[in-house]
């Protein structure tokens, strides 16, 4: 059965401009990152765990977070990494390697996140290695994926 000859398809491209409100917790995070290149987290009001990214409630205790804020990172530990081998994916993410990272001062299980890895020699990538962020110096928006260009190994 030849698709094009026998059956017709109608194109319908969807273009939408969404606008997402961050709320006050992530809002503070975005503002600190954009204006001061600082990474901040809040704390659970009950168990005292550091919540990164900051959020309204601790997922375990389900009580409203306290108003106590702490600075975390910017140095981080590389938990896991992989090469983007799917065609198109490296271009889309502007990176050949992605890593899962845990910032200093955060609990990896609760707070690790994914980001681009900026490495000259991928052969030197090791799980557990120490890394630091490379900040975007111009036109920061507050978004961690835009304002941090990637993480690079700490020299020495």
């Amino acid at each position: 059965m030849t698709e094009k000859a026998e059956f017709m398809r109608l194109p319908a491209t969807v273009n939408l401009e969404y606008k997402y409100s961050t709320g006050r917790y992530l809002g503070r995070f975005y503002k600190e990152l954009r204006d001061n290149k600082r990474l901040v987290a809040n704390k659970c009001g009950k168990c005292g765990r550091v919540l990164f990214p900051p959020r309204i409630a601790c997922p375990d205790c389900m009580v409203r977070a306290s108003d106590e804020w702490v600075e975390v990172g910017p140095q981080a530990t590389l938990i896991f990494f992989y090469e983007l081998q799917i065609p198109g994916l490296a271009e889309r993410h502007a990176a050949n390697y992605l890593g899962v990272l845990a910032l200093d001062g955060t609990e990896a299980e609760l707070s690790c996140f994914e980001h681009r890895l900026m490495v000259d020699d991928p052969g030197k990538l090791r799980e557990g290695m120490r890394m630091e962020p490379v900040f975007n110096e111009e036109g920061r928006t507050g978004r961690i994926r835009d304002d941090i260009l990637g993480f690079k190994p700490i020299e020495g």
Partner: peptide, 17 residues
């Protein structure tokens, strides 16, 4: 200190008739 983030979304569809 809420922010509003722009999130453009574009997806090409082709509907079989």
């Amino acid at each position: 200190e809420a922010f509003v983030l722009a999130q453009p979304y574009s997806a090409p569809y082709e509907h079989a008739t």
